[in-house]
Design a binder for these strands. Structure first.
Lengths: 142, 142
DNA sequence: TATTGTTATACTCTATAACTATA
DNA sequence: TATAGTTATAGAGTATAACAATA
Protein backbone atom coordinates (compact mmCIF):
# COMPACT_ATOMS: atom_id res chain seq x y z
CA UNK A 1 0.00 0.00 0.00
CA UNK A 2 0.97 3.58 -0.63
CA UNK A 3 0.67 4.69 2.98
CA UNK A 4 4.26 4.14 4.03
CA UNK A 5 5.69 5.67 0.87
CA UNK A 6 3.69 8.89 1.18
CA UNK A 7 4.77 10.90 4.24
CA UNK A 8 1.51 12.88 4.32
CA UNK A 9 -0.60 9.75 4.38
CA UNK A 10 1.65 7.99 6.83
CA UNK A 11 1.46 10.89 9.27
CA UNK A 12 -2.29 11.08 8.91
CA UNK A 13 -2.74 7.36 9.37
CA UNK A 14 -0.65 7.23 12.51
CA UNK A 15 -2.26 10.34 13.99
CA UNK A 16 -5.63 8.79 13.28
CA UNK A 17 -4.64 5.53 14.97
CA UNK A 18 -3.56 7.36 18.11
CA UNK A 19 -6.73 9.43 18.25
CA UNK A 20 -8.88 6.37 17.64
CA UNK A 21 -6.91 4.51 20.29
CA UNK A 22 -7.75 7.24 22.78
CA UNK A 23 -11.41 7.08 21.79
CA UNK A 24 -11.33 3.35 22.42
CA UNK A 25 -9.76 3.89 25.83
CA UNK A 26 -12.49 6.41 26.68
CA UNK A 27 -15.21 4.08 25.48
CA UNK A 28 -13.78 1.26 27.54
CA UNK A 29 -13.79 3.53 30.56
CA UNK A 30 -17.40 4.56 29.95
CA UNK A 31 -18.48 0.94 29.45
CA UNK A 32 -16.68 -0.21 32.61
CA UNK A 33 -18.16 2.63 34.68
CA UNK A 34 -21.70 2.29 33.38
CA UNK A 35 -22.75 -0.64 35.65
CA UNK A 36 -21.74 1.46 38.65
CA UNK A 37 -24.27 4.12 37.74
CA UNK A 38 -21.71 6.90 38.18
CA UNK A 39 -21.15 9.66 35.62
CA UNK A 40 -17.86 9.34 33.77
CA UNK A 41 -16.45 12.64 35.04
CA UNK A 42 -17.31 11.72 38.62
CA UNK A 43 -15.78 8.27 38.19
CA UNK A 44 -12.57 9.76 36.87
CA UNK A 45 -12.27 11.85 40.02
CA UNK A 46 -13.16 8.90 42.24
CA UNK A 47 -10.31 6.82 40.83
CA UNK A 48 -7.82 9.50 41.83
CA UNK A 49 -8.93 9.38 45.47
CA UNK A 50 -7.05 6.25 46.47
CA UNK A 51 -5.61 8.51 49.14
CA UNK A 52 -7.13 11.79 50.43
CA UNK A 53 -6.53 14.62 47.98
CA UNK A 54 -7.11 18.36 48.38
CA UNK A 55 -9.65 19.74 45.94
CA UNK A 56 -7.12 22.08 44.41
CA UNK A 57 -4.69 19.19 43.85
CA UNK A 58 -7.49 17.15 42.30
CA UNK A 59 -8.22 19.99 39.86
CA UNK A 60 -4.58 19.90 38.82
CA UNK A 61 -4.64 16.14 38.35
CA UNK A 62 -7.83 16.31 36.32
CA UNK A 63 -6.50 19.27 34.34
CA UNK A 64 -9.66 21.23 35.02
CA UNK A 65 -10.69 24.35 36.90
CA UNK A 66 -11.07 24.35 40.69
CA UNK A 67 -14.70 25.39 40.40
CA UNK A 68 -15.50 22.28 38.43
CA UNK A 69 -14.18 20.08 41.21
CA UNK A 70 -16.82 21.48 43.56
CA UNK A 71 -19.53 19.81 41.49
CA UNK A 72 -17.65 16.53 41.28
CA UNK A 73 -17.11 16.51 45.04
CA UNK A 74 -20.79 17.34 45.61
CA UNK A 75 -21.75 14.37 43.46
CA UNK A 76 -19.34 12.00 45.21
CA UNK A 77 -20.50 13.23 48.61
CA UNK A 78 -24.20 12.86 47.76
CA UNK A 79 -23.45 9.30 46.73
CA UNK A 80 -21.84 8.72 50.11
CA UNK A 81 -18.51 7.79 48.54
CA UNK A 82 -16.40 10.57 50.03
CA UNK A 83 -16.42 13.21 52.72
CA UNK A 84 -14.77 16.62 52.78
CA UNK A 85 -12.27 16.58 55.62
CA UNK A 86 -10.91 19.97 56.63
CA UNK A 87 -7.12 19.97 56.49
CA UNK A 88 -4.48 21.37 58.84
CA UNK A 89 -4.72 24.50 56.75
CA UNK A 90 -8.40 25.08 57.44
CA UNK A 91 -9.02 26.47 53.94
CA UNK A 92 -8.21 23.07 52.47
CA UNK A 93 -10.69 20.23 52.14
CA UNK A 94 -9.27 16.76 51.68
CA UNK A 95 -11.57 14.53 49.68
CA UNK A 96 -11.50 11.28 51.61
CA UNK A 97 -13.10 7.95 50.75
CA UNK A 98 -15.79 6.75 53.15
CA UNK A 99 -15.91 3.10 54.25
CA UNK A 100 -18.65 2.70 51.62
CA UNK A 101 -16.59 4.49 48.96
CA UNK A 102 -13.38 2.50 49.36
CA UNK A 103 -14.56 -0.85 47.95
CA UNK A 104 -16.44 0.90 45.16
CA UNK A 105 -13.39 2.87 44.09
CA UNK A 106 -11.28 -0.27 44.15
CA UNK A 107 -13.81 -2.34 42.23
CA UNK A 108 -14.11 0.42 39.66
CA UNK A 109 -10.33 0.60 39.24
CA UNK A 110 -10.23 -3.15 38.75
CA UNK A 111 -13.10 -3.17 36.27
CA UNK A 112 -11.55 -0.39 34.18
CA UNK A 113 -8.11 -1.97 34.11
CA UNK A 114 -9.19 -5.52 33.43
CA UNK A 115 -11.47 -4.61 30.54
CA UNK A 116 -8.91 -2.30 28.96
CA UNK A 117 -8.22 -3.26 25.32
CA UNK A 118 -4.58 -2.58 26.12
CA UNK A 119 -4.63 -5.50 28.53
CA UNK A 120 -6.93 -7.81 26.59
CA UNK A 121 -5.38 -7.35 23.15
CA UNK A 122 -1.66 -6.94 23.77
CA UNK A 123 0.99 -9.23 25.21
CA UNK A 124 3.24 -8.06 28.02
CA UNK A 125 6.13 -7.36 25.68
CA UNK A 126 3.86 -5.55 23.26
CA UNK A 127 2.67 -3.34 26.10
CA UNK A 128 6.24 -2.47 27.01
CA UNK A 129 7.01 -1.60 23.40
CA UNK A 130 3.88 0.49 23.02
CA UNK A 131 4.60 2.39 26.23
CA UNK A 132 8.12 3.09 25.03
CA UNK A 133 7.03 4.36 21.61
CA UNK A 134 4.31 6.59 23.04
CA UNK A 135 6.71 8.00 25.61
CA UNK A 136 9.03 8.89 22.76
CA UNK A 137 6.24 10.69 20.91
CA UNK A 138 5.43 12.59 24.10
CA UNK A 139 9.02 13.45 24.92
CA UNK A 140 9.71 17.15 25.40
CA UNK A 141 10.22 19.10 22.15
CA UNK A 142 14.02 18.77 22.41
CA UNK B 1 9.43 0.42 39.10
CA UNK B 2 6.25 -1.23 40.26
CA UNK B 3 4.25 -0.28 37.19
CA UNK B 4 4.84 -3.39 35.13
CA UNK B 5 4.28 -5.75 38.04
CA UNK B 6 0.91 -4.25 38.99
CA UNK B 7 -1.71 -4.89 36.29
CA UNK B 8 -3.93 -2.04 37.49
CA UNK B 9 -1.14 0.48 37.29
CA UNK B 10 0.16 -0.87 34.02
CA UNK B 11 -3.27 -0.56 32.40
CA UNK B 12 -3.70 2.95 33.75
CA UNK B 13 -0.25 4.04 32.61
CA UNK B 14 -0.74 2.77 29.08
CA UNK B 15 -4.25 4.19 28.79
CA UNK B 16 -2.89 7.51 29.99
CA UNK B 17 -0.08 7.43 27.42
CA UNK B 18 -2.54 6.81 24.60
CA UNK B 19 -4.85 9.61 25.73
CA UNK B 20 -1.94 12.00 26.15
CA UNK B 21 -0.64 10.97 22.73
CA UNK B 22 -3.97 11.92 21.23
CA UNK B 23 -3.89 15.25 23.04
CA UNK B 24 -0.46 15.87 21.59
CA UNK B 25 -1.72 15.04 18.11
CA UNK B 26 -4.61 17.49 18.58
CA UNK B 27 -2.32 20.21 19.85
CA UNK B 28 -0.01 19.70 16.90
CA UNK B 29 -2.98 20.03 14.59
CA UNK B 30 -4.12 23.23 16.30
CA UNK B 31 -0.62 24.71 16.16
CA UNK B 32 -0.18 23.81 12.50
CA UNK B 33 -3.58 25.27 11.57
CA UNK B 34 -3.24 28.46 13.58
CA UNK B 35 -1.13 30.40 11.02
CA UNK B 36 -3.83 29.75 8.43
CA UNK B 37 -6.39 31.62 10.53
CA UNK B 38 -8.94 28.83 10.15
CA UNK B 39 -10.86 27.33 13.09
CA UNK B 40 -9.75 23.80 13.93
CA UNK B 41 -13.13 22.23 13.20
CA UNK B 42 -13.28 23.95 9.82
CA UNK B 43 -9.73 22.90 9.03
CA UNK B 44 -10.50 19.29 9.84
CA UNK B 45 -13.31 19.35 7.29
CA UNK B 46 -11.15 21.12 4.73
CA UNK B 47 -8.51 18.38 4.85
CA UNK B 48 -11.13 15.79 3.95
CA UNK B 49 -12.08 17.65 0.77
CA UNK B 50 -9.15 16.53 -1.36
CA UNK B 51 -11.90 15.34 -3.69
CA UNK B 52 -15.52 16.59 -3.75
CA UNK B 53 -17.55 15.07 -0.92
CA UNK B 54 -21.30 15.12 -0.26
CA UNK B 55 -22.22 16.86 2.97
CA UNK B 56 -23.81 13.75 4.35
CA UNK B 57 -20.68 11.73 3.61
CA UNK B 58 -18.57 14.41 5.25
CA UNK B 59 -20.71 14.17 8.39
CA UNK B 60 -20.01 10.44 8.47
CA UNK B 61 -16.28 10.98 8.04
CA UNK B 62 -16.21 13.62 10.77
CA UNK B 63 -18.40 11.46 12.99
CA UNK B 64 -20.75 14.37 13.60
CA UNK B 65 -24.33 15.30 12.83
CA UNK B 66 -25.37 16.44 9.35
CA UNK B 67 -26.64 19.71 10.74
CA UNK B 68 -23.21 20.57 12.05
CA UNK B 69 -21.70 20.21 8.57
CA UNK B 70 -23.93 23.04 7.35
CA UNK B 71 -22.02 25.47 9.56
CA UNK B 72 -18.63 24.12 8.52
CA UNK B 73 -19.57 24.38 4.85
CA UNK B 74 -20.85 27.93 5.41
CA UNK B 75 -17.51 28.87 6.95
CA UNK B 76 -15.48 27.25 4.17
CA UNK B 77 -17.67 28.90 1.54
CA UNK B 78 -17.44 32.35 3.14
CA UNK B 79 -13.67 31.95 3.09
CA UNK B 80 -13.85 31.21 -0.63
CA UNK B 81 -12.24 27.79 -0.18
CA UNK B 82 -15.12 25.66 -1.44
CA UNK B 83 -18.38 25.83 -3.34
CA UNK B 84 -21.51 23.73 -2.96
CA UNK B 85 -21.98 21.90 -6.26
CA UNK B 86 -25.39 20.28 -6.73
CA UNK B 87 -24.99 16.58 -7.49
CA UNK B 88 -26.71 14.30 -10.00
CA UNK B 89 -29.17 13.60 -7.21
CA UNK B 90 -30.28 17.20 -6.84
CA UNK B 91 -30.74 16.87 -3.08
CA UNK B 92 -27.00 16.32 -2.71
CA UNK B 93 -24.42 19.09 -2.49
CA UNK B 94 -20.85 18.15 -3.24
CA UNK B 95 -18.39 20.30 -1.32
CA UNK B 96 -15.76 21.14 -3.91
CA UNK B 97 -12.49 23.01 -3.52
CA UNK B 98 -12.21 26.29 -5.40
CA UNK B 99 -9.00 27.19 -7.28
CA UNK B 100 -8.18 29.34 -4.24
CA UNK B 101 -9.01 26.53 -1.83
CA UNK B 102 -6.90 23.81 -3.43
CA UNK B 103 -3.44 25.17 -2.62
CA UNK B 104 -4.55 26.13 0.87
CA UNK B 105 -5.88 22.66 1.63
CA UNK B 106 -2.67 21.11 0.30
CA UNK B 107 -0.42 23.46 2.24
CA UNK B 108 -2.42 22.76 5.38
CA UNK B 109 -2.13 19.01 4.88
CA UNK B 110 1.61 19.38 4.44
CA UNK B 111 2.02 21.62 7.48
CA UNK B 112 0.07 19.25 9.70
CA UNK B 113 1.90 16.13 8.56
CA UNK B 114 5.40 17.58 8.65
CA UNK B 115 5.07 19.00 12.13
CA UNK B 116 3.51 15.84 13.52
CA UNK B 117 5.40 14.52 16.55
CA UNK B 118 4.89 11.08 15.06
CA UNK B 119 7.08 12.10 12.14
CA UNK B 120 9.58 14.23 14.03
CA UNK B 121 10.16 11.90 16.98
CA UNK B 122 9.96 8.38 15.54
CA UNK B 123 12.04 6.50 12.99
CA UNK B 124 10.40 4.79 10.06
CA UNK B 125 10.59 1.37 11.68
CA UNK B 126 9.25 2.75 14.96
CA UNK B 127 6.29 4.19 13.07
CA UNK B 128 5.55 0.83 11.50
CA UNK B 129 5.71 -0.86 14.90
CA UNK B 130 3.51 1.76 16.53
CA UNK B 131 0.93 1.51 13.75
CA UNK B 132 0.89 -2.25 14.15
CA UNK B 133 0.41 -2.16 17.91
CA UNK B 134 -2.33 0.45 17.77
CA UNK B 135 -4.11 -1.49 15.04
CA UNK B 136 -4.06 -4.50 17.34
CA UNK B 137 -5.57 -2.50 20.18
CA UNK B 138 -8.27 -1.28 17.82
CA UNK B 139 -8.99 -4.68 16.30
CA UNK B 140 -12.60 -5.78 16.53
CA UNK B 141 -13.61 -7.32 19.87
CA UNK B 142 -12.90 -10.84 18.53
C1' DT C 1 -42.33 7.34 2.30
C1' DA C 2 -37.35 8.17 2.82
C1' DT C 3 -33.35 11.19 2.35
C1' DT C 4 -30.45 15.64 1.72
C1' DG C 5 -29.53 19.68 3.54
C1' DT C 6 -31.09 23.77 6.47
C1' DT C 7 -32.71 26.27 10.43
C1' DA C 8 -33.73 27.18 15.11
C1' DT C 9 -33.19 25.62 19.47
C1' DA C 10 -31.50 22.96 23.37
C1' DC C 11 -28.13 20.57 25.84
C1' DT C 12 -23.54 19.11 27.82
C1' DC C 13 -19.38 20.24 29.49
C1' DT C 14 -16.35 23.34 31.33
C1' DA C 15 -14.43 27.89 32.29
C1' DT C 16 -14.66 32.81 34.17
C1' DA C 17 -15.59 36.10 37.63
C1' DA C 18 -17.01 37.47 41.94
C1' DC C 19 -17.42 36.06 46.67
C1' DT C 20 -16.24 34.01 51.62
C1' DA C 21 -13.07 32.15 54.77
C1' DT C 22 -8.93 31.44 56.04
C1' DA C 23 -3.77 32.30 55.81
C1' DT D 1 -2.17 40.36 49.99
C1' DA D 2 -2.76 35.61 48.40
C1' DT D 3 -5.02 31.11 48.31
C1' DA D 4 -8.92 27.25 48.93
C1' DG D 5 -13.21 26.47 47.90
C1' DT D 6 -18.00 28.00 46.41
C1' DT D 7 -21.53 30.10 43.62
C1' DA D 8 -23.69 31.99 39.66
C1' DT D 9 -23.18 32.81 35.05
C1' DA D 10 -21.40 32.49 30.42
C1' DG D 11 -19.40 30.29 26.53
C1' DA D 12 -17.81 26.60 23.22
C1' DG D 13 -19.10 22.82 20.85
C1' DT D 14 -22.40 19.85 19.25
C1' DA D 15 -26.86 17.46 18.93
C1' DT D 16 -32.07 17.28 18.34
C1' DA D 17 -36.23 18.32 16.05
C1' DA D 18 -38.91 20.28 12.61
C1' DC D 19 -38.86 21.72 7.91
C1' DA D 20 -38.28 22.20 2.49
C1' DA D 21 -36.87 20.11 -1.62
C1' DT D 22 -36.11 16.05 -4.03
C1' DA D 23 -36.17 11.11 -4.73
Amino acid sequence: MAAASDPLNEARLLASLIVRGAERVRQNFADAVEPFGIPVATARALLLLDEPVAMRALADRLACDQSYVTGLADDLEERGLITRVTGDDRRVKMLTLTPAGRPIRDALAKAVAESSPVMTKLSGTDRVTLAHLLSTVLAEPA
